[in-house]
Simulated assay, not measured.
Amino acid sequence: MPETLTLYSNPMSRGRVARWMLEEVGQPYEVRYLDYGPAMKTPDYLKINPMGKVPALVHGDRIITEYAAICAYLADEFPEAGLAPKERSAYYRWLFFGAGPLEATVIIKALGVEVPADKRGMVGFGSLQTTLDALEIALTESPYLAGDRFSAADVATGSQIGWGLRFGTIEPRPVLQTYWDRLSERPALQRANDADNSAMPPKEE
């Protein structure tokens, strides 16, 4: 019997990235939504993720946290989905770029924090400008981050680009917008978004 895939998530979290990846993989899975606050701090859930946050993926007796790690794990665990290329140098680079320099610099911007120019070497990403320049170069050379084929790197880092474009923390450079438009057409992303959107709390009148 196949081992159960269970995703612990919240529809307003990075769990959306993991759910997109699960849809791309095409294996049966279940989602258990947790509200922010006490629900993520219960003793039972802290056994799964001591950080008390989502997403967390449980696969049989294995636990994987951090959205980029979940994407990498699923790509390796289900190779038939074709989401990890054989030549993996660019794949590894960009798979973790989103959870590293890109996310860090976007959050810094969203918080209104300005890193002094003489301290940029300490933060590991330099500036948002240089981070986006690196992405733009990669996506000018190929349609996807790891080359000519869609991969888990596009799920993990592409999600960060999409959120940044939506919420205005990433400037709408034509190359980045065209890339995100391409990803937005994927049926797996549309299914994942429909499911998570339907679980969103109702808007207050």
Score class of each variant (00 low, 15 high):
Pro2Trp: 04
Pro2Thr: 12
Thr4Ile: 01
Leu5Arg: 02
Thr6Tyr: 00
Leu7Asn: 03
Tyr8Leu: 00
Pro11Ser: 13
Met12Phe: 06
Val17Phe: 01
Val17Gln: 09
Trp20Val: 02
Glu23Arg: 06
Glu23Val: 00
Gln27Pro: 14
Tyr29Gln: 07
Glu30Trp: 07
Val31Glu: 07
Leu34Glu: 01
Asp35Tyr: 09
Tyr36Ala: 13
Tyr36Lys: 14
Pro38Phe: 00
Pro38Lys: 02
Leu46Tyr: 05
Leu46Thr: 07
Leu46Pro: 04
Asn49Thr: 00
Asn49Leu: 00
Pro50Thr: 04
Gly52Trp: 01
Gly52Gln: 06
Val58Cys: 10
Gly60Leu: 02
Asp61Cys: 02
Arg62Lys: 15
Arg62His: 14
Ile63Trp: 01
Ile63Cys: 02
Ile64Pro: 09
Ile64Trp: 04
Ile64Cys: 11
Thr65Val: 15
Thr65Leu: 08
Ile70Val: 13
Ile70Glu: 07
Tyr73Arg: 02
Pro79Asp: 05
Ala84Cys: 08
Ala84Ser: 06
Pro85Trp: 00
Glu87Gln: 12
Arg88Trp: 02
Ser89Lys: 06
Ala90Phe: 09
Ala90Glu: 15
Arg93Glu: 13
Trp94Gly: 10
Phe96Glu: 08
Phe97Pro: 06
Phe97Trp: 07
Gly100Trp: 03
Gly100Ala: 14
Gly100Lys: 06
Val106Cys: 14
Ile108Gly: 13
Leu111Trp: 04
Gly112Cys: 07
Asp118Cys: 09
Arg120Asn: 03
Gly121Pro: 01
Met122Glu: 15
Met122Arg: 12
Gly126Asp: 13
Ser127Asp: 10
Gln129Gly: 05
Thr131Ser: 14
Leu132Asn: 09
Asp133Ser: 15
Leu135Tyr: 15
Ala138Val: 06
Ala138Gly: 04
Leu139Ser: 10
Glu141Met: 03
Leu145Gly: 12
Asp148Val: 05
Phe150Thr: 03
Phe150Gly: 01
Ser151Lys: 13
Ala152Tyr: 00
Ala152Gly: 15
Ala153Met: 10
Asp154Gln: 04
Gln160Met: 13
Gln160Asn: 11
Ile161Asn: 06
Gly162Trp: 00
Trp163Asn: 12
Trp163Val: 13
Leu165Arg: 03
Arg166Thr: 09
Thr169Asp: 02
Thr169Tyr: 11
Thr169Val: 14
Pro172Arg: 11
Pro172Cys: 04
Pro172Phe: 05
Arg173Asn: 08
Arg173His: 12
Pro174Trp: 06
Thr178Cys: 05
Thr178Asn: 13
Leu183Ile: 03
Ser184Gln: 06
Arg191Ile: 08
Ala192Gln: 01
Asp194Met: 14
Ala195Leu: 11
Met200Glu: 11
Pro201Thr: 03
Pro201Arg: 03
Glu205Cys: 12
